[in-house]
Each structure stands twice: as structure tokens, then as C-alpha cells.
């Protein structure tokens, strides 16, 4: 091969690689939202369990957009909980201490479970605070 221009490079358009799966996910999210409005019951989709192509993932992210809230959690690695442009639809990305993604979820709820402290932990913190106060006084 005599020149670099002879290498047959092809530029793909943004829609190459879209499979139609992402559109189906979006429809599913809409159904989950309507169920949440009717019953108050949240639900979630495990994005890694679906055969989404890299292009599908980008498309889905673009469709969902970003809302006002972003919550960072530091527990055994970083987790980021982001509100999408649709209130009540959250994107959750869990990473381990080596920054590997270990779970990617869409959660339809008012506030994702991982954000809320467990009741036992709140009880414990109340006791700890009480004993700290005793030590101070």
C-alpha cells in the first residue's frame, strides 16, 4: 500500500449501530412512570441485562437528558445517582473501588433506595449522638 489515503476508512453516522432496543427501553420507562403515578410503587430496569449496543446507550442517554439533581455516594467505590430530565426517573451508576462499573440501573421512584439511610443506621446514629452529648456535658 503506497499511501495512507488508500486505507478504506469509513465514517459511520450517529445512527449506525442503533438496534431499536433503546426505543423499547424508553417505552418501558414511560409505562413504569404511569404505574408509579397510579400505585406509588417504584420499579427499575437493569441496563446491563439488556442487549444494548454502544450506539443504543448513547441514544438513550440523550433521550433521557439531565435533571437538576446529582447525588454522589462514596460507599465501596463511587456511585452517581442522576435525575434525568424526567422527574421521577433516575439513572444510577455503581462503581467499585477500582472504578469498574458494577451496576447500571434506571430507577423510577421519588428517591432511590440507595440514597436513603436504613432505619437501623438512623437508630445507631441517634445513640452515638446521645453518648457524644453525655461526654460533652
Amino acid at each position: 500500500m503506497s499511501s495512507i489515503s488508500q486505507i478504506p476508512v469509513q465514517v459511520l453516522t450517529a445512527n449506525d449501530g442503533l438496534t431499536g432496543q433503546a426505543e423499547a427501553v424508553l417505552t418501558e420507562i414511560a409505562e413504569m412512570l404511569s404505574r408509579f403515578l397510579e400505585t406509588g410503587k417504584g420499579d427499575s430496569i437493569d441496563l446491563r441485562s439488556l442487549p444494548l449496543s454502544p450506539a443504543d446507550k448513547i441514544w438513550l442517554d440523550e433521550q433521557l437528558g439531565r435533571g437538576e439533581v446529582e447525588i454522589g455516594i462514596d460507599a465501596g467505590g463511587r456511585s452517581v445517582v442522576t435525575e434525568t430530565a424526567y422527574a421521577g426517573v433516575w439513572k444510577i451508576e455503581h462503581r467499585d473501588t477500582e472504578e469498574r462499573i458494577v451496576a447500571e440501573l434506571i430507577e423510577v421512584t421519588a428517591m432511590p433506595e440507595i440514597v436513603q439511610p436504613h432505619k437501623t443506621d438512623i437508630e445507631k446514629s441517634y445513640n452515638t449522638l446521645q453518648s457524644s452529648l453525655k461526654q460533652i456535658s
Binding site: D43, S44, I45, D46, R48, S49, I73, A75, G76, G77, S79, H94, D96, V102, A103, L105, E107, E113, I114, H118, T120, D121
Partner: peptide
């Protein structure tokens, strides 16, 4: 010194791998 959230997160990744519904993590 590990938190309950760390554990919940681990279970979320395990549930994902085991193809259980995400609600199974808790």
C-alpha cells in the same frame, strides 16, 4: 467500617449478574 450502602451496592451488582430483578437487591 463498611457501610450498609456498600453492601446494598454489592447486592445490586450481584442481582444484575444473576438476572434477578433489580428489586431483589434489598
Amino acid at each position: 467500617g463498611m457501610s450498609r450502602r456498600t453492601f446494598l451496592k454489592y447486592c445490586a451488582s450481584l442481582a444484575s449478574l444473576m438476572a434477578l430483578p433489580p428489586s431483589a437487591a434489598a
